[in-house]
Design a protein around this nucleic acid. Structure first.
Lengths: 232, 232
DNA sequence: CCCTTTTCTTGATAATTGTCAAGCATGCAA
DNA sequence: TTGCATGCTTGACAATTATCAAGAAAAGGG
């Protein structure tokens, strides 16, 4: 793999603390690949041959069952994905596909497990990452089970506003169709849900959201750090 | 803590590989406690002071938001719970309460983090446990988002049958009210869903389930290891 | 640029799920 | 045993969500 990428990968929490020799060993076996949009990277059920690190672009993690499909998360740079399957040497639980043109580093899972066994610092970083992922899914689970779709959308809007810098107007960074899937509803219902937020001062024009009455929306959404704060 | 419990704790995957001195250090700070049924052990949002290990009884992990409540999982002996919060030194995301009379070991989180930092084998065991927990929630997420409540119940029935030994008749091990919550529905709908499985040869008498036509039920449920097999 | 394709929206309707109220069953305690 | 509390079930109804169909808007490709 071109050494140009070493520093940015090394800067990731996952790889920051490990021994230089181990990092070099991982990188030697790794390679970078560019993918066009809408390319299947991974299919659930397959053995986990590579740990993926997204350098640029974006990736959709989704799952299928019985002809239905749902998006579980969106991966944005720079972060790894499918770490749990790699470490446990188990089949992938989720499928992955590029959303945009994406640059991805592929590190052979075997190498990752090997270094994991000999580098305590790396092992601890893996723990930290896994714990974060785990807590993230638990939050998402609470979101799904405790809230109606309108409440989920309201809280998503507030989270996205924060991510976009906090201004009253900002852009969605999901295609609406996928946003609907992430939020556990149909595209038709997402359209209606956006209308349902109008009484709370939310207006939508294409991908542009404007919150006219922040306190009113928050009073309805009741955001909670134990569900909506994806940092903790 | 009474040394009587040492061997069974030591036998847990989480503690099996660590150095004896480290194990002893953890145990010195730990203590066992007996709780009656329906006792709140943990409230979401609190700092994670203790890693819990359930020795006997059972514990419900649940969450609340805006006056609503949902069960996320049931802990059965012998296993630890709330490991992620302990390791990340973050607030609990879930609340916990005893379902039955339960015996629980409490290990100060600070001690766990301390040993985690110096014992690589323990760190690896933590990874394995976390990865498993993580994958388990992902499966549950897929179950919720990809299936209707009737399909979730059908697959739950099949999973429980397997857990109970595989016979055509077996007992539920959840109170129905809580089963409903775990499956993401109301008790009323669970009642109706059980009736909805009658056409597939499932009969219910109290907590006793009988599957009269296994292939028919499986044809409807379409169980999938990437959702229903909680071992992998 | 136009044309095609896809996404988004809207309406009508159906299916699913939740709520409320009441009755039944079960288990526990006096 | 009786009485009480709790959980379970059922029915009627309401709310939510999904489905289908069609048109509008937007995006991508020659």
């Amino acid at each position: 793999m071109p050494e140009v990428h070493y520093p940015e990968i090394r800067a990731l929490n996952l790889f920051a603390g490990m021994q230089e020799a181990h990092f070099q060993a991982l990188m030697r076996g790794a390679y970078v690949q560019n993918f066009p949009p809408q390319i299947d990277l991974i299919s659930e059920g397959e053995p986990s041959d590579f740990l993926h690190v997204l350098i640029s672009g974006s990736v959709d993690l989704f799952a299928r069952w019985n002809g239905r499909e749902t998006s579980l998360a969106t991966v944005r740079p720079i972060s790894s994905f499918i770490l749990a399957a790699t470490i446990r040497n188990s089949p992938y639980l989720m499928s992955a596909r590029t959303l945009e043109k994406s640059r991805i580093i592929l590190i052979p899972s075997q190498d990752v497990r090997g270094i994991f066994d000999v580098d305590g610092e790396f092992a601890r970083a893996v723990v930290s990452e896994l714990a974060q992922c785990y807590r993230s899914v638990v939050k998402s689970q609470k979101d799904l089970k405790l809230r109606t779709s309108l409440e989920r959308l309201a809280n998503y809007v507030l989270r996205q506003q924060k991510r976009a810098g906090g201004a009253a107007s900002f852009d969605l960074d999901h295609e609406k169709r996928r946003l609907a899937s992430v939020l556990g509803m149909t595209p038709e219902n997402l359209s209606r849900a956006f209308k349902g937020l109008q009484p709370y001062g939310v207006t939508v024009e294409g991908a542009r959201i404007t919150i006219r009455d922040q306190p009113d929306l928050e009073r309805f959404a009741r955001p909670n750090p134990l569900i909506d704060d994806h940092a903790t």
